[in-house]
Computed example of a mutant assay.
Amino acid sequence: MKQIHYIVLIFTVLFTMSSCEDFMDIHKDFIKDGEIIYSPKVDSVSFIAGEHRMLFRCWFYKSPNVRSVDLYWNNNQDSLITSVMPSAGIDSIDVLLPDMEEKSYTFNIRTTDMFGHKSLWTTDFGNAYGASYQATLADRRINEISMVEKNGIIEGKVTFYSAISLQVRNQVRYEKNDGSVSIVTALPEESEILCPDAKVGSSFETRSFYIPEEEAIDTFATEWVVSSKNFPVVYMYDRSAWKALAVSDETASDGGGMNAVIDGNLGSYWHSRWDGGNVP
């Protein structure tokens, strides 16, 4: 019985040695020239969109020996080698990529250290924008145009519908009473633009600004468009400080009371007594 155990043990050892030799054969091609030393990979990257350009942003972590960031695109037909000397902690670089055709790109990035070692590849994506994107943009829609008076100053007021996504500001260009031209700006969350000293009955123009992506480095503006309606020739005085001082009579059943006459709300009303009593 012991003899059988010895025979099994011998076969097991021989099989294990053979397996190890086969395992080493697999790796011989990879280590025949010695071990491979890699430069540290970039910690993270991003490509920020612009108009026929992009901003390449790259972060390093504990990579003081790195001496260049090697960037390739268009199937590695185009490249940019940027010299760097990152610190021993967290560090970053920004590199502008100009003259980029309007399209989507795939980028391959690696580093080279001071000894000539290359890092493993990092792949990321980015977009450049131009005329095709510009052609998709539209002005913010106008809801209402009016003239208002406040503190003795006549102002044109342009009220917009809600702004759409990635719209960053809107402008109105108009003529003032002295003949000069002025431009006023509103943010997307603002629904109104006031145009101080706007000329009554005059025309005006609008345009809108967009970014193609969040954090984009360039904005795109629509062309100036003349509004289909002018500022009106009539306007309402500011009645916020007005008060009705006296009336002939006032009762609770007579509508909103005497101040309803000047509250600017066509849905409210007031009238004097019309039934019963002595006619004043």
Results as ranks from 00 to 15, higher is better:
T222D: 05
E21P: 00
W224G: 06
V247W: 07
S253V: 07
I211Q: 15
K103A: 08
E213P: 02
T185F: 02
I93K: 06
I183T: 15
Y129C: 04
H271D: 08
V261T: 11
V148H: 01
T222H: 04
W242L: 08
V168K: 04
N65M: 06
T122Y: 14
C58M: 09
A135K: 14
R239G: 11
R53K: 15
R173T: 00
M85Y: 08
I153D: 13
S63A: 15
L71G: 02
S208P: 10
Q167W: 00
D94W: 00
K41M: 11
Y210F: 15
V184I: 08
S202L: 01
V95K: 12
F220G: 00
K28R: 15
V181Y: 06
A49M: 04
G276H: 05
P280E: 10
M147W: 01
T111Y: 07
S18N: 11
T82F: 15
F11Y: 09
P196C: 09
A252K: 05
L9K: 08
S162G: 01
S87V: 10
E214F: 12
D113Q: 04
L194P: 02
D33L: 04
S79D: 14
V226H: 03
S191M: 14
K157N: 05
I211T: 14
Q134G: 06
P232N: 07
N278A: 10
I142R: 00
S162E: 15
V226Q: 13
P98N: 14
E149M: 14
V233G: 01
M147E: 06
S180E: 03
V8M: 06
N127L: 09
T16Y: 11
K150T: 11
S248F: 11
S162F: 09
M24T: 10
K157D: 03
G267Y: 08
V148W: 03
S63M: 06
G264C: 14
G152P: 05
E175N: 05
S182K: 11
V69W: 01
T16Q: 12
A186V: 07
A246I: 02
V148C: 01
S182W: 02
D33F: 00
E223K: 12
F56S: 06
M114A: 09
G34I: 01
D263E: 06
Y72I: 04
D139A: 07
Y105K: 14
S268P: 02
Y72V: 10
S208R: 00
G276S: 15
G179K: 02
I37Y: 14
N127Y: 14
E205T: 03
A241F: 05
S227P: 03
I7V: 14
L194R: 12
V181A: 01
T251Y: 11
L55N: 10
D33C: 03
F220H: 04
E215C: 12
I81G: 03
R239T: 09
S79L: 13
S44P: 00
D43A: 10
E223H: 12
D99R: 12
S119C: 04
P86E: 03
A88Q: 07
S228H: 00
W121D: 08
W270Q: 04
A88F: 09
S162T: 14
R273V: 15
S79P: 02
V95P: 00
S132N: 09
